Simulated assay, not measured.
Amino acid sequence: MSARILDLPDPDAAAAFARRLATQLGAGDAVLLSGELGAGKTTLARAAIEALTGETNIPSPTYTLIQSYETRSGIPLAHADLYRVEDPDELDELGLEESWREGIALIEWPDRLVEYPGRRIEIELEFTPGGRRAVLRGFGGWETRLDDI
C-alpha cells in the first residue's frame, strides 16, 4: 500500500489542503482523520466543511459526537468525533454507516470504529519540526485519486 505525504507547515497550508480535498469528495466518500490531540484533525475537517457547505460557524462535535450538514450540491455530510466513544454499541446510534454510504463522512478518531468504510481516504496527521505532516492512504478507489489533492 502506497502513501502520499504532504508537509503542512502552518494552518494556511492545512486549510488549502482541506479545500483541495473537498473538491474531490462526493457521495459515498469517507475521510478518516487520525493523529495525536492537537494535530489538526478538527482544523482540517472545518476547512473541508466550509468549502463544501459555505458554513463558517462549525462547532467541534466532541460532545455531540456528530454534526450534520448539507453540501452546496445537496449531499448530506456528517462530521463525527469519536474521541469520547468507549463502547462500540454507541456507534450504532450515530448512523455513521448510513453517512458514508449515502453522503460524505468526516470522522475524527476512526480507531474507535468497528468497521471501516470501503471507499475512504485515511489521513494521519503527525507533528514535525516544521509544523505538521499528512500521510494519505486511499482505499476503494481513492488509491488513484490521492494525486488529485
Rank of each mutant, 00 (worst) to 15 (best):
L77E: 06
G140T: 08
S60H: 04
V114N: 06
R119C: 01
V85R: 01
E126D: 13
Y116L: 15
A47N: 04
I49Y: 10
D147Q: 14
D92W: 04
G38D: 12
D81S: 05
D12L: 15
P129W: 08
G26K: 07
D111I: 05
T42M: 02
A105W: 02
M1Y: 11
P117V: 01
G130S: 15
G26H: 07
L106R: 03
E90P: 01
A22L: 07
P11D: 09
R4K: 12
I123Y: 06
S73G: 13
L6F: 10
A22T: 00
G130M: 13
T71D: 05
A3G: 02
E50W: 09
A51Q: 14
I123R: 02
R72P: 01
A48Q: 05
E90I: 03
G118Y: 02
D10S: 09
G38H: 10
Y69M: 01
G95R: 10
E108H: 00
L8V: 08
T23L: 15
S60P: 08
E126W: 09
W100D: 10
L96F: 03
L146W: 07
A80W: 05
K41G: 07
A39N: 02
R132S: 00
L77S: 02
E143K: 00
P129M: 01
T42G: 11
A51D: 12
T128D: 03
E98I: 01
A48S: 03
I75M: 07
G130E: 14
L6M: 11
E102D: 14
E126F: 00
E102H: 13
W100K: 08
T23Q: 15
S2L: 14
A14K: 04
L25F: 05
I149D: 09
E90M: 01
E126M: 11
R133M: 12
D89P: 00
A16G: 12
R119E: 00
T43G: 07
A18Q: 11
G138F: 02
L8S: 10
A15I: 07
E98W: 03
A78M: 11
L33V: 06
E98Q: 13
